[in-house]
Design a binder for these strands. Structure first.
Lengths: 167, 167
DNA sequence: TATTGTTATACTCTATAACTATA
DNA sequence: TATAGTTATAGAGTATAACAATA
């Protein structure tokens, strides 16, 4: 059973958002060179990766999955389309902007995945493949949990009254 | 034993950097209103939080712990000093810029912690306090693991030759 | 000579609001 | 009227290089 060793964590290390940020930072640094070498930004890469899994996706779904705000996504679509990595897909709802990978986009995606594979295996070996799975499960479960938490009424937080405008 | 339920994860959800980003995003959104209401940015908050744990810290340590680049930290020091939340600490090594919380800074920190406490408890209840601990341990362990991984020679990655300049 | 931090600069992302087009 | 996406804009973060001061 992959239980992590219970070292005493410092108070600073117990902040969830900070722990997530710091861990992401070092992890990303590990894989970023592979993205950089193909002249992709991290948000662009997240879009390619999301599209590699599904046939085609609309802007709203991509924005949510890739944690990119709509205005940024518009720019990213422009860039990736100009490079011939994605292409628009006709959609019955003309409001929706659906896109998919082109063959070139898919090829680039698979190239990056292949190149970074050894680094990923090295990480899995050093940390433990099973613990890595546990971590991924916990991360995705936590995300689900938080998303299901009711958005609180700001008016109930005295400290937030000034933001909520006392309504 | 807090083992997460082994749901089948989609390929996209198995990307560690993306999972970390998405989970941080929803988690941060939960606590961000408390930071916002005191006119603090997230990086500023991370600095206050780090200083609340240690007596005084220098810029280099803060940059590493708070995942802030030195140029940004310089600006953050200016802002927090102007607001009277931090103050410089004389240091034997005149190159080092050491700072600590002022009493006002400490008071603000504790105010924010108190205000966000109910939300944190709500999260711990919904997700499971023990699983949350496990997650924090795994995150900090993974960070240590990655940081101990040798920086690879870019020249060994064929894909990175162009970046490394073939040296 | 190496280290710490600041300045300068360019670029990207973040965030909000206002607007257009479609349903 | 509500929704999807774009445009506009201001602000903050990201990243590098060049520089100053100190060790």
């Amino acid at each position: 059973m992959p239980t992590s060793c219970r070292k005493a964590l410092r108070k600073f290390e117990k902040s969830l958002p900070i722990a997530l940020l710091r861990t992401r930072e070092v992890t990303m640094r590990l894989f970023k060179p592979f993205i950089d070498s193909h002249d992709l930004t991290m948000p662009q890469w997240r879009v390619l990766r999301a599209l590699a899994e599904d046939e085609a996706l609309d802007a709203k779904t991509l924005a949510e999955r890739c944690v990119i705000l709509p205005p940024s996504l518009t720019r990213i679509f422009r860039g990736l389309t100009q490079r011939g990595l994605i292409e628009p897909v006709p959609c019955t709802d003309a409001r929706r902007h659906m896109v998919r990978l082109t063959p070139e986009g898919l090829a680039l995606f698979e190239e990056v995945v292949q190149e970074s594979e050894p680094t990923y295996r090295q990480l899995a070996d050093a940390f433990g493949a099973e613990r890595l799975d546990t971590l991924l499960d916990l991360l995705n479960d936590l995300r689900d949990t938080v998303q299901r938490m009711p958005d609180e009424d700001p008016a109930e937080h005295p400290a937030l009254r000034k933001v909520a405008g006392m309504r």
